[in-house]
Design a protein around this nucleic acid. Structure first.
Length: 560
DNA sequence: GCCGTTTTCGGCCCGACTGTTTTCAGTCG
């Protein structure tokens, strides 16, 4: 709103910074405000501390209300139109009285925009395109839906004789669960030809921009892909720059500046403007006094400080995984038999598998009745005898009822080696209700793991509004493992909370939630999220060897 | 509005591309 009103951009930036700081805060905002500690947080000064306090106290602030009164609600939608920023929106509103998308579209069709200073036929046309784009695409895509397309583009580019190096950068390289576009970086001695080749690839629907170093296209799937072309010697600097994140880059350039250096996508320069030669990102970090920061961590969430102090985590890798929990079979809503799932697990080099079909209240998923449980447990016993070098753990994904209880009596739960407690229905809860429901489920002595703790579906539905802090602390108190559901549609626990769990010593189980043989692939997405969450092999439960897991589950079982 | 081995005032990351403009503002990442 301040931007739309033409407020000082540095002041606006201060609000952005403070907002991000608050969002990332693990401490309780209310407590900090109560103890008058807000002002001591970097990025929050006396004015913002006062306003935050006011919002906590009254639910809003006078300043916010004043801003809201000046700006019609529809104007916010205009900010989502590509090519329209605060200046142009403000002008449209002031000069033409435009305050929503429909009226803007109408004005474009009547050529009204041509009268405005700084507007021309091209601008008007682009705004119409932007409106069409806004209606057609959400502009957000699941990592899993984009990765393959991006890899194909990378492969096509590598085929070109004038392309030296080509790598995916941006949020894909950082393994963000949801991405906006594809960023590809190449080095070449003939950028014009490579740019032309890229724009002409069959995957490309339209070219939205093209210059000597940058070409942007939209693919048939509606996903934008940006190609940056640099010289070979610029590649490491450019790779760092285009991997981002924006926030990480800003912090890095800030650091460089404080050291008397200048940093951009073409290089690192000393005070005299002389280039400091680096062969790799690692050398760039070293020059700035930092350990090598893996792409997944580059979100300016403490990685630079950790790199400075030599305290970066040694991130978990797929090869650290020894076995998996949380898979479904034909007994409930899976498509493969237990035997098939076991064979697939072995094929992937793992030597234990935790079966957890749905429980009886999950009608929609053909949840297991007591007789079926007995049948399944007997089958598992037979298969375990057949495979002495492999262990199938007997489990269940038990529904958490509205009151926080699990949907089998204790004597049934006692038959399993492990119990995953999950919410699958009754999503409409207040934060207090959801948190209490989850905590109660974790207090059940038979609960080993908490399944997909918020129930979110990425780009699909919000999770129930649970207090993550209270939930993780309860997991610590109840000795419950929290699942990081590795399905690329869930990735729940969110990676942003993994670090807190790790700090409290709460173990995370990286669970594929596989319903088909192919869904063991989910583990790759899960590893990406776990790495973003700073998790090391030690923090992930299923990096433990089979015997340790056996011992843990045996000791953990039953009433404490 | 925030911050300080450059400072309590004067800065605040850096560059590409577009379109409208006759040298640059706006937008984007």
């Amino acid at each position: 709103m301040m931007e739309l009103l033409g407020e000082n951009p540095f002041k606006v930036n201060a609000y952005y910074t403070a907002a991000r700081t608050v969002e990332l805060l693990k401490e309780d905002l209310g407590e900090l405000a109560g103890e008058d500690q807000l002002r001591h947080i970097k990025g929050i000064g006396s004015s913002l501390a006062k306003q935050i306090g006011e919002i906590l106290h009254t639910g809003t602030s006078q300043f916010y209300q004043e801003l809201r009164a000046k700006i019609p609600y529809g104007l916010f939608a205009l900010t989502r139109i590509s090519g329209l920023g605060p200046k142009k929106i403000s002008l449209l509103h002031k000069q033409l009285g435009i305050s929503d998308v429909d009226r803007l579209e109408e004005a474009c069709r009547k050529n009204k925009l041509l009268e405005l200073p700084g507007f021309g036929a091209k601008t008007q046309e682009n705004i119409l395109k932007g409106i069409a784009g806004l209606r057609k695409y959400t502009g957000q895509h699941l990592f899993v839906n984009v990765w393959g397309l991006a890899e194909n583009l990378e492969k096509e580019l590598k085929k070109h004789p004038h392309v030296r190096d080509a790598l995916l950068a941006g949020s894909l390289r950082r393994r963000k669960e949801v991405v906006k576009d594809i960023d590809i970086l190449v080095s070449s001695d003939n950028p014009e030809e490579v740019a032309e080749y890229f724009a002409g690839l069959p995957q490309v629907e339209t070219v939205v921009g093209s210059g000597p170093t940058k070409t942007s296209v939209v693919l048939h799937q509606g996903i934008q892909a940006d190609l940056r072309i640099v010289e070979q010697g610029e590649f490491p600097y450019a790779l760092h720059h285009f991997t981002g994140s924006q926030e990480h880059n800003i912090a890095m350039r800030h650091r460089a500046k404080k050291m008397g250096l200048k940093m951009n996508e073409y290089g690192l320069f000393d005070a005299q403007g002389k280039k400091i030669m680096c062969q790799s990102e690692k050398e760039i970090f070293r020059t700035l006094g930092l350990d090598n920061i893996p792409p997944e961590l580059r979100e300016n969430m403490g990685e630079i400080e950790a790199a400075e102090q030599g305290k970066l985590p040694c991130l978990v890798e797929l090869k650290d995984i020894k076995g998996v929990f949380h898979i479904h079979t034909v007994y409930s809503d899976g498509t493969a038999s237990i035997r098939e799932m076991v064979e697939e697990t072995r094929r992937r080099g793992w030597n234990y598998l935790g079966i957890s079909d749905h429980s009886q209240s999950a009608f929609y998923a053909n949840g297991l009745k007591v007789e079926q449980i007995n049948k399944q447990l007997a089958e598992i016993d037979r298969l375990n005898e057949e495979n002495p070098d492999f262990t199938i753990f007997k489990g269940i994904e038990a529904d958490i009822r509205k009151d926080g209880s699990l949907d089998y009596p204790d004597e049934i739960l006692a038959q399993f080696d492990f119990v995953i407690a999950s919410i699958h229905s009754g999503f409409k809860m207040t934060e207090e209700e959801a948190t209490e429901r989850l905590i109660k489920a974790m207090q059940n002595p038979y609960t080993t793991m908490l399944g997909h703790p918020t129930g979110r579906i990425l780009l699909g539905r919000e999770g129930y509004p649970v207090s993550m802090k209270a939930m993780i602390e309860a997991a610590r108190d109840c000795h419950v493992i929290i699942e990081l559901n590795a399905s690329p549609y869930r990735l729940d626990l969110d990676w942003r909370w993994c670090r807190y769990a790790k700090e409290l010593g709460v173990k995370i189980a990286l669970n594929p939630d596989a319903h088909h043989l192919a869904e063991f692939d989910h583990m790759e997405a899960g590893i990406g999220a776990a790495r973003k969450g700073w998790l090391e092999a030690f923090d992930v439960f299923n990096t433990r060897p089979r015997e340790q897991v056996k011992d843990y589950l045996r000791l953990r079982k039953g009433p404490k």
